[in-house]
Design a protein around this nucleic acid. Structure first.
Lengths: 170, 170
DNA sequence: TATTGTTATACTCTATAACTATA
DNA sequence: TATAGTTATAGAGTATAACAATA
């Protein structure tokens, strides 16, 4: 069950492939944890990770979000956001509304049921992570948080330069 | 295009949700980079990330790997490894063989074409990562490598304790 | 003409479980 | 009985592109 891709580049400890080795370790780690979180989300809440992502975006926006904005924030294409939102609407967790002057714009907003349901999911989600990371030094976690942020910003910068991103995030 | 899930837990800088905040940042970062790598793998090599993972496992094993072993290393279930391997076999990148005394065992092994193809993919893959992580301090990368390894081992430990894993990795 | 969102399509991954054949 | 791998199934994610309504 354990990903070993990172070993496939060899055990050499030189710095020549540092980026690659770090990436493979990042990938296998997030895959390991993601699979467990997905399993629990499905078992306990019949939800997926992308769905959880959508709900969490809407939870903090009392006025809801335009689907295009939702698409950007979740890194899911417009077309696929439609399907994602449709499933959640089918479950009664959110509604779509066309209220503004611009008749093209659709806003997705959590229902009351959606808010309550997401609160349960978020609480469970948080406790799962605490469980899986029990025993880790807060100083280390805090340092990681900062450094991973740096990695992310660096990647975004290079992607923007290569024209892969329309919008630069904050 | 940029995932913002991590902001959804609020901007508080207390340590109460440190694990959660780190996790969300890890997830959005790997998603950002993964999407780009997947896009390039598909465009340039008509391959997927799980396929790349399989190939990289086989590349370093001259005698090939039993499918069960492959399943564990890639964190893909047995049934799904069959499909994954079938697609790669269809592309002529690997072959399946039943040679041992134990007639139940199937070994997957790269073909010559598969070796050459993977070498191209791996070289491109490595250069993409160098590109996306250009400018990062090697000391930082090295520290991250070590700390992420710690996170991974911690998660594995907790999962093993919860009976979620059959085998413990090295 | 450009933008917002939908529809259509094709493929792959993922999870689960029943099944075959060997051991 | 247990194990290795396959088959079957259902659901969801992903990428791409064409499309309708509106601006």
């Amino acid at each position: 069950m354990i990903n070993d891709l990172e070993m496939a580049v060899g055990d050499s400890h030189d710095e020549s492939k540092l980026e690659l080795r770090l990436w493979l370790r990042l990938l296998s780690t997030t895959k390991l944890i993601s699979q467990e979180l997905r399993r629990r989300l499905r078992t306990d809440f019949n939800a997926t990770l992308p769905q959880f992502d959508v709900l969490s975006q809407l939870y903090r926006e009392n006025d809801g979000l335009r689907l295009g904005e939702l698409s950007q924030r979740t890194m899911v294409t417009n077309g696929n956001v439609t399907g994602l939102v449709e499933r959640l609407e089918g479950d009664g967790l959110l509604v779509r509304e066309r209220l503004g002057q611009d008749k093209r714009v659709t806003v997705a907003k959590l229902t009351e049921h959606g808010r309550r349901e997401f609160e349960k999911m978020a609480a469970a989600h948080e406790s799962w992570l605490k469980e899986l990371m029990t025993g880790l030094d807060p100083i280390v976690l805090s340092g990681l948080f900062s450094h991973i942020g740096h990695i992310k910003r660096t990647a975004i910068e290079h992607l923007a330069r290569a024209g892969e991103l329309e919008t630069l995030p904050d």
